[in-house]
Write a protein that binds this DNA or RNA. Structure first.
Length: 589
RNA sequence: CGGGACGUAGCGCAGCCUGGUAGCGCACUUGCUUGGGGUGCAAGGGGUCGCGAGUUCAAAUCUCGCCGUCCCGACCA
């Protein structure tokens, strides 16, 4: 049994001035953590107990599908050089030299080291599949650590790696992780979403993120009010309400109209008396491409057509152009391609590439929302003129129709039609089908059943341990403190002796604490010589889900049982306390 | 890395503009008091004013440099 009077639980009445988000303020106030430097935190007694419990759950669930390893955080340069990430990781990687001057780094993740083990040890398909995981400290020199434990430079991660003989095997390993992650986060008492994540530039690989809604989050997530549809902004799609196309005038062939000084979508729409939904928004961008033969890089125009009232999503654009960086065209580049000033740009009169590989010509990407639309209005590539009767596929030929549009809140869910919402969220887990990237770059090979040498296919899977704690606090807090699920709280229950000077109260508090402890619960006995008000405030602050107040009612053999989340209290007979508690928290840890 | 703010006792802050004895609340120590939502009284302890240089008879205060922390942005396998 733990006696508060003998513990170090430095609670604070006020939060440090530089804490902004709720979880940061409360973790410090509750005496869970103290800051050592930017993005570097010490865990004190309560904080450590809580993260240990989280790791316990992770370990228990992961042991059902994999094997726990423990890899070094200190890594030699060579393995990172082999994967190419010694360079790729840039300033995000902490680097150091040993006494001989050899380069080392602190591990940000462990694909390299795991793959190194795999390539040295795995020889046959008979040894596959393998799932190897570890719970270990990671180091990342974040450009901007922030928000307490939310973005830090040293943190604990459960990272796992799967090795399979083929894609079907990877599907199984991936699904196992998906299901295990759901069990882990359920057991931690989190409300979370599983979202389809940006699959990366190379395409094909599936990736999902486990996200928790919180105002402190750094990522935007689109989710459905009703069903379980959820995706990040780079992937999110929505159903669009049908738009009525304009009727053609005359023979319906492209018709220039004089629009003096009308440059913006709104201006033109108003001037012509149409909705922006019938207008084409033309965005002129540039990418840098490398010539496949010469290796020389040269700029290439990418023109986007969107519905007039839609916003372009840069991540979607980026994946549409193969992950290349894009930038807006400069004035001179616009004139060279369109022979027109900005404000009057359109798709007519330009010889667009027929495919992305048609490298000599500019690319025309048309948003899917314009596919099948007719009689749109766009720029005429001529100052003060626009063109009516533009129909994609008829008057001009897109290189491709792609989804380029940012979803906005309130649009319809693609699955069920209910309104979509957009929230900030924090990522607590990520599962990823890696493919052959590391097994190939680092030369891992096994023999398949035909005796042929093949690279094993990999997956990688991560959980941020501290982020589980942070997210849980973000989800469950009020002005006085926070409450954790008993599974991850430092203690199941705090027994408050409201008056330690009263012998009966003191003795009953001890008894109850002992009794609950012998029933397998983690009990904190607040035996401090403090006023009840102080103890109640502290109890409310530190995240323990249940409290037992031992007070005057001991003369009636009764104590108060308080649930932190609701602050509801009920009187319980002392003799029935263990049984009562078991009803609330059946699985003693 | 760009923009902004801050750095004075463990925590939260005032003092700086207009240079001259370093202050308040909480916390801490001792004694008494109180005992169901941060009790009251009294007496105490604790500060290289982030670091360095400069100006000055004199610098927490003015000037310059550096360091650190936070916020916004960029970045984020």
């Amino acid at each position: 049994m733990h006696r508060w009077s003998q513990l170090f639980i430095p609670t604070l009445r006020e939060a440090p001035a530089d804490a902004e988000v709720a979880s940061h303020k409360l973790l410090v106030r509750a005496g869970y953590i103290r800051q050592l430097g930017a993005g570097i935190y010490s865990f004190l007694f309560l904080g450590n107990r809580s993260t240990q419990k989280i790791m316990g759950i992770v370990r228990e669930e992961m042991d059902k599908i994999g094997q726990e390893f423990y890899l070094p955080a200190l890594n030699p340069r060579e393995v990172w050089e082999e994967s190419g990430r010694w360079t790729v990781m840039g300033d995000n990687m902490f680097r150091l030299k040993d006494r001989k001057g050899a380069d080392l780094c602190l591990g940000m993740t462990h694909e390299e080291v795991m793959t190194d083990i795999a390539r040295k040890e795995l020889r046959s398909y008979k040894q596959l599949p393998q799932i190897w995981y570890q719970i270990q400290t990671k180091f990342r020199d974040e450009p901007r650590p922030k928000a307490g434990l939310l973005r830090v430079r040293q943190f604990i991660m459960k990272d796992a790696y799967s090795f399979d003989i083929d894609a079907d095997g990877l599907d199984v390993s991936y699904q196992k992780h998906h299901d295990t992650y759901c069990r882990i986060f359920d057991r931690c008492g989190l409300k979370y979403m599983v979202i389809d994540a940006h699959s990366g530039a190379m395409g094909g690989s599936k990736s999902q993120e486990f996200m928790v809604r919180t105002p402190a989050g750094e990522d935007l997530v689109v989710s459905c009010e009703k069903c379980n549809y959820a995706a990040n902004m780079e992937k999110a799609v929505s159903k669009l309400a049908p738009v009525e196309d304009l009727k053609p005038e005359g023979d319906g062939s492209p018709l220039e109209v004089h629009t003096p000084g009308q440059k913006t979508i709104e201006d033109v729409a108003r001037f012509l008396g149409v909705s922006p939904k019938n207008k084409i928004k033309t965005l002129a961008m540039m990418i840098t491409e490398q010539d496949a033969k010469t290796g020389k890089s040269h700029p290439r125009a990418v023109v986007l057509l969107m519905r007039g009232d839609h916003q372009m999503n840069e991540a979607k654009l980026s994946s549409a152009v193969g992950g290349k960086e894009t930038r807006p065209m400069e004035e001179a580049e616009i004139r060279e391609l369109f022979h027109s000033p900005a404000g009057y740009l359109g798709p007519l009169g330009i010889d667009w590439a027929k495919s992305m590989n048609d490298a000599t010509k500019p690319i025309l990407l048309v948003d899917k929302a314009l596919e099948g639309r007719v009689n749109l209005i766009g720029g005429a590539n001529k100052e003060d003129y626009h063109v009516k009767h533009l129909t994609p596929g008829k008057n001009f030929h897109p290189t491709a129709y792609v989804d380029l549009r940012s979803v906005t809140a309130g649009e319809e869910c693609p699955n069920c039609g209910a309104p979509l919402r957009i929230d900030t969220a924090v990522e607590i887990g990520h599962i990823f089908k890696l493919g052959y990237e590391y097994s190939e770059s680092m030369g891992a090979r096994v023999l398949d059943r035909n005796g042929k040498e093949v690279a094993p296919i990999m997956g990688s899977y991560g959980i941020g341990i501290e982020r589980i704690l942070t997210a849980a606090i973000e989800q469950n807090n009020d002005a006085n403190g926070f409450w954790l699920s008993p599974s991850i709280a430092p203690f199941d229950v705090v027994v408050v002796s409201t008056n330690p000077k009263d012998e009966k109260i003191r003795a009953v508090s001890e008894d109850i604490a002992k009794q609950l402890e012998s029933s397998g619960y983690d009990v904190l006995l607040d035996d401090r010589d403090e006023r009840p008000g102080v103890k109640f405030k502290d109890a409310d602050l530190v995240g323990i889900p249940f409290r037992i107040n031992v007070g005057k009612k001991v003369t009636e053999d009764t104590v108060e049982f308080v649930q932190r989340s609701t602050l509801q209290s009920s009187d319980v007979k002392i003799s029935a306390i263990t049984e009562y508690f078991r009803g609330l928290r059946p699985t003693a840890s």
